[in-house]
Amino acid sequence: MTTTENPVLPVARTCPFAPPEQYTRMRENQAVTRVSIPDGKHAWVVTRHEDARRVLNDRRFSSDRSKDGFPSLVAGGNVFRKNQEPSLISMDAPEHGAARKSVLGEFTVKRVDALRPRIQEIVDGLIDDILARDGEIDLVEMLSLPVPSLVICELLGVPYEDHDFFQENTKQLIRRDTEQEDRRNAFEQLRTYLSDLVTAKEADPGDDLLGRQIVKLRAEGTYRHAALVSMSFLLLLAGHETTANMISLGTVALLENPNQLAKIQADPGRTLPAIEEMLRYFTIVDTATSRVATEDLEVGGTTIPAGDGVIVLGYTANWDPDVFTSPEQLDFERGARHHVAFGFGPHQCLGQNLARAELQIVFDTLFRRIPTLKLAKPVDDLAFKVDASVYGLYELPVTR
């Protein structure tokens, strides 16, 4: 049972470039806070960097979203996961290790480096289209969303001509105010679409990630249709939505910090460190790293009972002043590789190498080819995704 004293999560961002004040107060007041969540239950929120890494690296905190105590920050959000084949983010050891190992080779640094020429070709083609247009354009529509969508579609073997379908359904899933029935419909439509796609590839595996998985797992005798559908669901959604939002937010950050942008333009070797700082600074998926305690466990001086949900607030962890000096400052010289924007531990983001490569190629190319790019609206007038579980921008109007 919840009490009125418990803070209520989630809390929308009111400042485009800072965590909600309530999150900051929780971190300052105590390491672990009991909160109320939309399903009427309670959970525990971990806000400090050291504790966040400890929880995410401790397998006694389960990632199994089918458990009753697993916290959802969307009312009824766990309903759709019942009786569904778990994806990587919902698995615990030992199943998680085997499933992750099966696909990990698709996202190594070496594999991503091999994809760089194609990513560059995609980015150049989209910027050609931008340069062919006069006046104001929406960078989300013309660059931020198409780049990761095209890349993940080609990698998985998903027809890009279906991008409007999966982007619209993804939008329904990540908006916190989506009606439950609409959320269910979006979920089921995507699952059906991907199940049909996997069925087609079972008959004729191509040279793409899904086709290679079918061939490999069949040879090992471990192939299961439902498991590949769940994996494709996760990779398709996470593979385009998160990177698209970081492209948009990063572009705004660079345009609002022209001195730091000038350093990157003069020395592209500074781009990757800048990306790490932007990942820390924005932490766009700030409440996705949730867990449920499998036994009574102590965190930050608080005992979390077995069966209780735990929410790791990556945003406050990445703004922990004990770890990041003056965290409110966007400092490209910081060296912020120890952030938890990609999570931490065994469930750390599978596609982080690909995301870094896409961001690096976009920023280096965009500001080299369009050095006069500027915002068409003041930052405070931009349409930020304050109502979504993945932070970003719905539109980014720019001129050149």
Rank of each mutant, 00 (worst) to 15 (best):
P258S: 09
V299G: 03
G250V: 09
R81G: 05
T222M: 07
K67M: 15
P86L: 08
F344E: 10
V8H: 14
E181P: 01
M246A: 07
L272T: 13
V46D: 07
I304Y: 06
P327S: 13
G343T: 09
I152F: 10
A238C: 11
I137E: 01
D204Q: 14
R337L: 10
L228C: 03
Q348Y: 04
S90F: 12
I37D: 05
S36Y: 05
T365M: 06
K377R: 15
P273A: 06
E85V: 14
P10H: 02
S62M: 06
Q120K: 13
V398Y: 03
I174W: 02
P71F: 01
T316K: 08
R291K: 13
A355R: 10
R53H: 06
Y223Q: 01
W319P: 00
A12Y: 01
A43E: 06
R25D: 11
A266C: 10
G307P: 02
V323H: 12
G157L: 08
A52W: 04
V45N: 04
D138T: 10
F80P: 02
K377C: 11
L143I: 08
A43N: 06
T283P: 00
T316A: 10
P146G: 06
E220I: 04
R34C: 13
V229E: 03
V252Q: 08
E298I: 08
H339R: 09
E358M: 12
G157C: 11
S63Y: 02
I122H: 04
L155R: 03
E179P: 10
R48N: 07
F70Q: 01
V340S: 07
V310A: 07
G105V: 05
A43Q: 11
G97H: 12
D129K: 15
T294I: 08
V35R: 06
N259G: 15
D113R: 13
K385S: 08
I119R: 06
P321R: 12
P205V: 06
V312C: 00
F61N: 06
N57V: 01
I152K: 08
F61R: 02
E85T: 15
M91I: 09
L145K: 08
S248G: 15
L104H: 14
P148H: 10
A262Q: 14
V35G: 09
E333T: 15
Y281R: 08
Y193R: 04
M142L: 12
A244R: 12
S326H: 15
V74R: 12
S62K: 00
A132R: 14
R191K: 13
M231S: 10
V8I: 15
C349F: 07
A244Y: 00
L190C: 04
K263M: 11
G97D: 11
R280M: 12
L297D: 00
T287A: 12
V215M: 13
Q84F: 04
G314Y: 03
P20M: 13
E358R: 07
D296M: 09
G301Q: 09
L373D: 00
K41D: 10
E277F: 10
I284A: 13
